[in-house]
Design a protein around this nucleic acid. Structure first.
Lengths: 251, 251
DNA sequence: CGTAGACTTGACGCCTCTCAACGTTAGTGG
DNA sequence: CCACTAACGTTGAGAGGCGTCAAGTCTACG
């Protein structure tokens, strides 16, 4: 497991994270405004919905979930966030966080005060562009999620979810065929718009078809037949593109 | 019906649109890069998914829908866009449009070449912030849509949709109690993740309960009981906030 | 005036939710 | 180290909301 440095310029994640496309000098300026605090324990909150919006965060190690509250106090999970992913940008136009962020395991984050980030993006056009790229990507991901929620069956949703995780782990240098599901079944179900029982049933069906298997506990998953899982997921071109499965050579 | 000017500085929409919070001088600079072409006819495309990403657009009059294509060639509508709303920003980090945009009626747009907008946002921090605000809001709207799609019943979805439209018309100076549904039942169903028949059935039920009524054709809707519709929609706090229904005085 | 598309209405079936019971894991304290 | 317990996960049975199919009605446009 790669140890992430405490400075962007030496951090193994910087090709995936905010510093992408920044010059060495610019990364140093960015480093100056970033705060790296103590780790957050599992179950602990990074911020709560309604807190004053002071900082955005980049995940250094671990996983977080972000969620909003429905009318009756249930949570609606809006995303799971792995190393190098940014949290909080969607609150940019309001004074308070519009979601809560909770650690699913022990997690380290880089805190970036928005006031300073805002100031710095006036000076560094590349940084500004990178922030806008990240926001643009998030919009597209959310829209793919909308497609998943409005058009896909339970099996398609679970398969898509697993492929998305696999791809994100791969990009970070981990195995795409074996990884830990740090979120509970209930969290997955919530995120995918399904009942816990349905998620569980799909997992058992996938195991019987020998598409996946679980090691020891129900957390560690092995993806046995990546290709078949892709078929089941009925991915759109947009999703294939995001997962790096689309051949860009065809017109 | 208010006629929108062909310059931002005199446009009645500018308090809702990109120029928000720009100084008079800055608006003039923005005006210089905006192109205002001929109207787009109903059914015509503003751009297609896959076209080179050259410009973002602000709707001046009319309505557009944006959509992506699913694996089997069906469209998945990602949004309806009324006057003053921006289109195309979600493609900011890629070379091609990630969605298609099609006019639902005769529509006028302001075209803003991204190269120039990008350049100008280096010079005008307020413009940059406004763009990021718009993107942040879009992310939150998409996440509310995800909640609608994963948690709400057919009646809740339709009620929420009508309230959203009503609110947006109101903000633009039109009646919130009577407006034209420029999109087809099929478009609404697609957007809301429902079958056309279900949308139609919900409309008849709402009519029997005298919550709404239709004038003449099936396009012009009257909202008879706004409050009751709010109850049916089971709006989250985030949605109430967006619709201006939340009392911010309580802690 | 005729036709195509949009909209409505009804009947039926299926996918997924709900409810309930049971098995398993992890964390706690003795 | 083990017993205990609460949270998590799995499995089954039953029900209901919504999708699908089909037919009929209405509207718009040539």
């Amino acid at each position: 497991m790669a140890l992430q440095s405490t400075a962007c310029k030496t951090c193994s994640l910087n090709p995936l994270c905010l510093p992408v496309s920044l010059s060495f000098a610019d990364i140093e300026k960015l480093d100056e405004i970033i705060k790296r605090g103590r780790p957050i324990q599992k179950g602990e909150h990074l911020f709560h919905q309604g807190d004053a919006f002071t900082s955005v965060y980049a995940v250094r190690t671990g996983t977080l979930k972000t969620y909003t509250l429905t009318k009756d106090g249930e949570e609606q999970i809006t995303g799971f966030h792995l190393a190098s992913e940014m949290i909080g940008l969607s609150s940019y136009d309001v004074a308070t966080y519009q979601a809560s962020a909770k650690a699913l395991e022990t997690t380290n984050v880089c805190e970036i005060p928005v006031a300073l980030l805002d100031e710095l993006s006036n000076q560094l056009p590349d940084l500004r562009r990178q922030i806008m790229r990240i926001m643009g990507r998030e919009i597209r991901e959310d829209q793919q999620m909308m497609m998943l929620l409005s058009k896909k069956s339970a099996e398609e949703r679970v398969a898509s979810f697993l492929l998305s995780l696999a791809h994100r782990f791969k990009r970070r240098g981990y195995s795409e065929r074996m990884f830990r599901l740090t979120m509970s079944r209930s969290d997955m179900a919530n995120f995918l718009g399904l009942a816990v029982e349905t998620v569980s049933r799909v997992f058992t069906r996938f195991q019987h078809q020998e598409l996946i298997s679980f090691g020891g506990n129900a957390k560690e998953i092995h993806v046995l037949q990546h290709g078949e899982l892709c078929n089941i997921a009925s991915l759109s071109d947009a999703e294939r593109l995001e997962l790096g499965l689309l051949d860009l050579t065809n017109s």
